[in-house]
Design a protein around this nucleic acid. Structure first.
Lengths: 246, 246
DNA sequence: TGATAATGTGTTTAATTTACACATTAAACA
DNA sequence: TGTTTAATGTGTAAATTAAACACATTATCA
């Protein structure tokens, strides 16, 4: 919740012509899309950042973003940025929030729409061409350029919430994964430790995993069974109702 | 999740000058704010709509919206619209989603940010001056102008979800309310029937209500006790963790 | 003043979550 | 090659929470 300003109460609506005039002239604003790209590697949640090359933010890291083109759908812009930066095509992408403070950007008025993306680091690894583009452990992300810290915090928090209610997490894992991988993922995202036995029971009872009858290879310990996410099973059993609880 | 387009992978970032040029010239777009104002009256969830005066949408209802000014914070614009239309100052307001399809508005490219607002109809009643501004039962809302039906559906769905996890609902009730009022509210928002006894137990166990030791007045049945929402209690007891469940 | 229809308070049962323990298996190493 | 080690894999009992359900109480209204 935010606090309100005082304004005059008005009565009438505007004509199409008035609106067209406004739309075409004085009231236009630059719109950008910022992508918060999460990855999961070595049991850690990562985020992709790029070095800011603006003097004001010299040395600081920032999110991947670009301006929206006037003839481009908003979602399409988010995909364009992802494709440009990661080379990846079919990725999980979700709009999170729009940030529109007047002075948030040094280049002028830029309202930005934040998108959260989850990608599989294994698939992506070979596509980081730019030296100024790096994966960062989310635990060490602070002091980003612009208002990107706030944007990042918002997205991480939303990820933490959504990953508990929807099967998003699998986008960060390889197709085949062990239950240990899955638990590591949840522990990394939520930044908590969980009971291994209850964690397994929970996922088995949700009935959204398929046992692949394969074992892990080349692990320095007893290999675990491999599973895949079963979207059909999930769709059938998924929760309709949460229940009041706050 | 949406599907991706193909684009070239790029390596470099832009300079401040490049960005300034882009921000100041060709890439600007009209931005609007649309407010989905919910109210609760006669045990029904209502939404405030205004008659569209565009020929293309003659006779259709639409959400309350206006263009964002270049020197105006995004949140401030939402408050301005609310204040203009309802006369209300301190209202619950939350950004929901941004809609940015290229052809969503007949007047040209307009990206719109949707805000959900919850107001107390009792406080507001005297401020509807405009005849073309009306409360509508949400169950009868269909075929809105522009893409407003989609925006409305998104907001209603988000309200249904958030009202179960956070104490938003109280914004729709008077300061003093009975448990029957509260249950009617939840049943109206969620469009379900609930068990009266379990509903009461739930709210008592959440420990966020204060018994005012007052009774309802002028009701055509045995009066119920009146309560108010206790924000301090809520803050102390509120949930930190949801638990994985989908 | 009696019928009616709401409020207000349980209790019992089922389902879910939490806490916790032990057997099994493969890698690592002496 | 056998022993140690550190993981995987499974089960059970207790505690908490949610769901189903019944009855006494109180004010209104005919």
């Amino acid at each position: 919740m935010i606090t309100a300003n005082k304004t005059q109460q008005v009565k009438s609506t505007k004509t199409l012509q008035t609106i067209q005039t406004e739309v075409q002239t004085s009231n236009r604003i630059a719109l950008s899309v910022d992508c918060i790209i999460f990855g999961f590697d070595e049991a850690k949640l990562k985020v992709m950042l790029i070095r800011s090359d603006l003097k004001k933010y010299a040395g600081k890291w920032s999110l991947l973003g670009d301006l929206l083109f006037p003839d481009e759908d908003l979602d399409a812009a988010a995909y364009r940025i992802l494709k440009q930066r990661t080379g990846l095509n079919d990725v999980y992408l979700e709009q999170v929030n729009t940030f529109g403070s007047v002075n948030r950007h040094p280049a002028g008025r830029v309202v930005t729409v934040a998108y959260c993306s989850l990608i599989n680091v294994q698939h992506h690894k070979l596509n980081i061409l730019d030296n100024e583009l790096h994966w960062h452990d989310v635990k060490n992300v602070n002091d980003l350029a612009f208002d990107h810290q706030k944007i990042f915090d918002t997205c991480l928090h939303q990820l933490q919430k959504r990953v508990q209610e929807h099967p998003l997490g699998f986008n960060l894992l390889p197709k085949k994964f062990s239950l240990r991988d899955l638990q590591n993922l949840y522990e990394a995202i939520l930044d908590i430790k969980m009971d291994r036995r209850n964690f397994r029971k929970k996922f088995f009872s949700m009935d959204c995993l398929t046992d692949l009858n394969e074992m892990e290879q080349d692990v320095p310990h007893r290999p675990g069974k491999l599973y895949k996410f079963n979207f059909e099973k999930y769709e059938k059993k998924k929760k309709k109702w949460i229940g009041i609880d706050f």
